[in-house]
């Protein structure tokens, strides 16, 4: 694998995370518990679409096959996506979405802080813009997880259940393969082993403030680095890609 190929795969992963999460978040549109929250969730979706555009465009350039961000977003099949399993998980109730947002936002806070120093100028620039958005996403998710954890009996139960259900997908955030090691050596990628303890400490503190329990580390489901996903991704894609696939000659 050349450095260029590794960087393409690496950028694609980041782009896919933003893309698939934006799709999930946009499902909340007109479905939130009150309108202010509808606006907030839409903002996060919009941030994620913007980020996926920047990253997939860059990935297309790195690949050198003239694939645009839309071609990468809409014309690949299930096994060719490299987003984390966590972001494709269904929205569930509001607690599931907030816990998912918390897990991802804490990860991204540390990740993009480091990425600002990447020797790849494009990724560093995208990181600087992304970090501002991530800080806001994190504040929002953190406040809500605490409110729900320390709210009513029902909200506490739902939130703890969301944590327990999603925990098995949290390990994959820190998984690294030869793409990572190659790019870490180049000063481009981030050593995720360094972020893992920071992530866990931050999460533990939020849970503590919300009277929530951090689960025991048990089985961690992984697979996305090889393009192996949960069943949910295929359905998400068939909905998202419908028009592009049904009318392959059309411009929209």
């Amino acid at each position: 694998m050349t450095k260029q190929e590794a960087l393409f795969k690496y950028t694609l992963r980041l782009g896919d995370n933003a893309l698939i999460l934006s799709q999930r978040l946009s499902e909340w549109c007109s479905n939130a518990p009150f309108i202010e929250e509808d606006l907030a969730l839409t903002n996060f979706a919009l941030d994620m679409i913007g980020r996926s555009q920047a990253l997939l465009k860059y990935a297309g350039e790195l690949e050198g096959l003239n694939r645009t961000e839309d071609m990468l977003a809409y014309r690949r099949s299930e096994r060719q996506y490299y987003n984390n399993l966590l972001v494709e998980q269904p929205n569930g109730d509001f607690a599931v979405t907030m816990v998912r947002q918390l897990f991802i936002s804490v990860f991204e806070k540390y990740y993009y802080t480091e990425m600002q120093k990447s020797s790849d100028e494009m990724l560093a620039a995208i990181a600087a813009k992304t970090l501002k958005e991530v800080k806001y996403h994190l504040a929002h998710a953190e406040d809500w997880v605490i409110r729900l954890g320390d709210g009513t009996g029902e909200s506490h139960y739902r939130t703890q259940k969301a944590i327990d259900d999603l925990w098995m997908f949290s390990g994959e955030l820190f998984e690294m393969d030869e793409v990572d090691s190659k790019l870490i050596a180049e000063g481009i990628a981030i050593d995720l082993d360094k972020i893992r303890p920071l992530w866990k400490a931050y999460i533990a503190n939020v849970f503590n403030n919300g009277a929530l329990q951090i689960p025991q580390d048990g089985y961690m489901q992984t697979g996305s680095r090889q393009g192996i996903h949960t069943e949910y991704l295929g359905h998400l894609l068939s909905e998202m890609q419908y028009l592009q696939r049904a009318y392959p000659d059309a411009q929209w």
Binding site: E36, E37, L39, A40, H140, D143, R147
Partner: peptide
């Protein structure tokens, strides 16, 4: 509308 100060600031912004 918001239930507390932090939420009020966020909702006002959004």
């Amino acid at each position: 509308h918001a239930s507390d100060k932090k939420m009020a600031l966020q909702n006002a912004r959004d």
